[in-house]
Design a protein around this nucleic acid. Structure first.
Lengths: 251, 251
DNA sequence: CGCGGTTTTGATGATTGTCAACGCAGGTGG
DNA sequence: CCACCTGCGTTGACAATCATCAAAACCGCG
């Protein structure tokens, strides 16, 4: 297998970085991945990329920064569905139904690459290896949503919070954005609450518990994990849903 | 457009019935859909089609009956992710990661059609119209999961329960399995609880409330909806996520 | 320096869970 | 044919988790 695309070439697209966990890529395939991220737009924190029900047919690749996809209820409550990070593609629903089914907002300064429906369909039908990689990414998204649902439905506030933090840590590690056990975290406690189905006040109390148990600290936009093993044990975290399928990588 | 496949032909596959809501199909396309359901297996209530982590590469089309996909936690708690009904295809994750990411259990006597990975991939790449239909179905699944997450995260037990019941009613109507406002419902209160993130006892209390408000009754495996409008209003139910995209059907 | 948003903490309250008990229906075996 | 058993539904009393209300400290930023 030709791994020059990874070993020799430069990886400057978040999508390549993410999908390199799935399989090695030839130069040709790597170019295809690069191409999907050629158009780029910079956005500020708190800017909205699209709102629910907006007529959007593009899909968006996150290149840099943190975002969140959410729904707002009639009483003003908000539920965050998913946190798209660099390498993630958001809005496949746009392709099929022609409008956004959630809103998508930037949590930090962010760089996104809009990808047209035809570009996506083109890649999906022309290059079956790349198509498989994208399908894997979609499946990983679904797995994260599943875990999220399990968390909100059946895990205590403490376990649920720990689970989400561990997920962030592992996702960042997978895309090579984290070396030690600390990382920037531009997510306010209110935002965290809207993801976890809690109130900001209760999230604060949970974070204090985690801090006092010497498991992790969230301070001025940065998370430091002090004991990842204990944190994973507390969350009963099974990391397989984030990893590429066995036999795909040659590790 | 040739609608003979629907108007003239007989529709005996649940998949055709479901996807007929998405678009009209030619005879050729209808045959393709039929073919996906050619192999059939009958199963009893409480039988398990597959368990989480089983090595499965097939995907399953539900032809008849009710099923539920769930995860079990280390403490024995269960969260139901999704209720696949006739016409739904379950287990796309099997294709990509080669094993089941949830368990799938029959709630009633059920008929399923296993579909091999190659058959699915074949249809996805050879017939782009059918592929689009399947992508729409996948997107509808995702939308249901999203609503489910919103329910469990941010809706009160009462609203959440009402929302799920309305969803069932509309799904059944879409696949032509319900004419009046009552339908068989082989879902115990304990199962309902595992879907809603509640206890069976509390679900019982909520059902009483709904009954006493003259909105709906669940009795001996059958739901009767007395006031669908008020029920939808209570749940703030927006049905668009279940319907085919605008402009697809000629209604 | 003041302002808005966020974090933090305490006091109180509501929604939902836990425990316990009983009725009911269906199935099974003596 | 009936006793028994098991799963499910129902209800009440009580407990726990988490929400709500209130207030103050903090922080970055114009």
């Amino acid at each position: 297998m030709d791994r020059a695309g990874i070993v020799g070439g430069e990886i400057n697209s978040a999508l390549s970085r993410k999908l390199s966990a799935f399989a090695p890529w030839t130069d040709d395939e790597a170019r295809t991945l690069q191409m999907l991220g050629s158009r780029q737009r910079r956005m500020e924190a708190h800017q909205v990329i699209f709102y629910e029900n907006d007529a959007v047919s593009d899909v968006f690749l996150i290149q840099r920064g943190w975002t969140c996809a959410y729904k707002i209820l009639s009483d003003g409550a908000r539920q965050i569905i998913y946190f798209p990070l660099p390498g993630d593609i958001v809005g496949f629903s746009n392709l099929v139904v022609g409008k956004a089914t959630t809103s998508l907002e930037c949590l930090s300064e962010t760089i996104i690459s809009p990808i047209s429906a035809s570009a996506i369909y083109g890649v999906l039908t022309s290059d079956s290896k790349v198509a498989q990689g994208i399908l894997w990414a979609m499946e990983q998204d679904r797995a994260m949503m599943t875990e999220h649902l399990v968390s909100v439905g059946r895990r205590s506030a403490l376990v649920r919070t720990a689970h989400l933090i561990v997920e962030f840590a592992l996702r960042l590690r997978l895309i090579g954005a984290q070396t030690d056990n600390s990382f920037n975290f531009p997510v306010s406690q209110g935002v965290l609450a809207d993801a976890l189905g809690l109130t900001a006040i209760h999230v604060n109390r949970i974070l204090r518990q985690l801090r006092e148990a010497d498991l992790m600290t969230l301070q001025s936009g940065r998370i430091a994990i002090h004991d990842i093993d204990q944190l994973m044990a507390l969350a009963a975290f099974d990391p397989t849903y984030l990893s590429p399928p066995r036999g795909m990588t040659d590790d």
